[in-house]
């Protein structure tokens, strides 16, 4: 009887083989082939169809690779620096307050992320809300008088800072939630034991709370880093054309002008490897995984 029930999942296993596994195999296949090679299918030996050309071509895009990693890393660190204290102080509040704070953190995630990013465009524009505000309080006059410049606005949009801001704004909840759920589950007797043994609050934090919350931190870091390094909408909207990231590069190979799905697949494959590395590191430290899955 037990085995009979198991057959209920057979259709889904087939479905996964078709729609999850097969597409990934195709990405790998395209990553190691080129249009010219495939056109000669049957004419040249199979072994010659597979090439590393796409990976060799990636060398041209080193700047974009470096920028993607750099910006995603900065965004992750900022999220951690902002998110950890938030999760920590939230966990110390009463249950009613905590529930409300949780709802308040999740709520923005229900507004389409493109719309939220679009709001930042209006704020950061050269003649946008923030610059108008600075103008109104006379900040530019003050600076111009002191430094003898003729500043009329701060350039904020279409900079790397704007892209990082967009990432932090969109993915901060992904950092707060796993850390928070690990901290509220901490065993309070451990903290009391540490205090009884003479640790002051800084020591309790450094030697007990922080190490125990590490699974949550790692899960948060992964959940911020992976979407940040692969985004293309945020960089497009807040970074303009001169802050291209890996995601934009992939997009261009498929739907944009630089049409080359073979190269696009190779870059996607590299990105998949980045994700796998993140997952392996995270699973190595265990636990945090569950929350990551739930989001």
């Amino acid at each position: 009887m037990k085995n009979k029930i198991a057959w209920l999942s057979a259709p889904y296993v087939l479905w996964m083989a078709l729609v999850v596994v097969a597409p990934i195999i195709m990405v790998v296949f395209y990553a190691f082939t080129t249009a010219e090679g495939l056109a000669q299918w049957g004419e040249i030996p199979i072994t010659e169809i597979f090439t590393l050309d796409n990976f060799a071509r990636m060398g041209t895009y080193t700047v974009i690779f470096a920028r993607s990693f750099q910006l995603a890393l900065v965004a992750t660190i900022v999220c951690l620096l902002l998110g950890y204290p938030l999760a920590y102080v939230m966990a110390k509040e009463g249950p009613g307050f905590q529930r409300m704070a949780m709802v308040l953190i999740m709520l923005p995630m229900w507004v389409n992320f493109l719309l939220r990013t679009y709001a930042w465009m209006a704020i950061l524009e050269n003649n946008g809300i923030l610059n108008n505000f600075f103008e109104a309080i006379g900040l530019f006059d003050l600076i111009n008088r002191i430094f003898g410049t003729d500043l009329t606005y701060f350039r904020m949009i279409r900079t790397q800072g704007a892209v990082v801001l967009g990432m932090v704004y969109n993915y901060l909840p992904f950092m707060v939630l796993p850390i928070y759920s690990v901290i509220i589950k901490l065993d309070h007797s451990l903290l009391e034991a540490a205090r009884d043994l003479g640790a002051n609050s800084a020591q309790v934090f450094r030697k007990v709370i922080f190490p125990l919350s590490l699974p949550g931190v790692l899960s948060g870091v992964t959940m911020v880093f992976v979407p940040s390094v692969s985004t293309f909408a945020i960089s497009r909207m807040l970074g303009g054309n001169n802050q291209m990231l890996l995601g934009n590069l992939i997009e261009q190979q498929f739907l944009g002008g630089a049409y080359n799905p073979y190269l696009g697949s190779a870059i996607a494959l590299v990105m998949m490897i980045i994700v796998i590395v993140c997952m392996v590191v995270m699973n190595h430290f265990g636990e945090g995984e569950e929350q990551a899955v739930m989001l």
């Binding site: 992976v226 979407p227 692969s230 997009e251 799905p261 996607a268 990105m271 994700v275 990551a292």
Partner: peptide, 13 residues
């Protein structure tokens, strides 16, 4: 777990 863009590209292909 996978980055959305990888899933999207894989399905597209």
């Amino acid at each position: 777990m996978n980055a959305d863009i990888v899933t999207g590209v894989a399905l597209c292909i």
